[in-house]
Amino acid sequence: MKKILILLSLLALPGTGFSLDLNGHWVLEKSEITYTVTHPLHVVHGKSISAKGKGVCYSGHGDFHLGVLVKSFDSGDGNRDLHMLEVTRAGLYPLIDVKAKLADIGGKKAPQELTADVTIQFAGKTKEYPKIKLEVIEWKEGTARITGIIPLTLKDFDIEPPSLLTMPVKNEVPVKLDTSWHRETTKAEGNKK
């Protein structure tokens, strides 16, 4: 009998505070998305804090969707930002659309790292980035802060590298994501509160 009790106790542990119930809808609370462009004469960082996103978790999987307007990026120079809008065809495709599929996120204690298959629609092109490593900075019941770097290149989206003094920027433009999410309270949960 004791053995059965110990076994049942162990099975019950995940449901008594050691696992996180992630199922449900998630909303992007705040974010900082930064691209880095490298030119032989200088390195430029463009940042946006205006992304919007939603996500849904179910059965240990997660589907997250994040959108950010190209014009919301600020590199600290107005003329450079306008040139960036031109080369990325932002007039025709104003939104950068990021979809991430996460697996194996259920029933775990706060993980250190997640893996996501990321699909990006940008400048009228679509590119998939499989198995992107995401770092979990914070992972609590109802909130999560996740960061990661997408190894984006200009060629992936048929973007001609802008040049200054006939020297073009590097093809590699890594994009750093720093996102904070919170789980949406359903109407029923809200009424309880």
């Binding site: 919007k52 996103g53 849904v56 978790c57 059965s59 589907d63």
Partner: peptide, 17 residues
């Protein structure tokens, strides 16, 4: 278990732009 992904909440139009 119901799969919340079955709803259509992940479209660009629903992001709030």
């Amino acid at each position: 278990e119901t799969n919340p992904a079955n709803d259509t909440s992940l479209s660009s139009d629903d992001l709030g732009f």
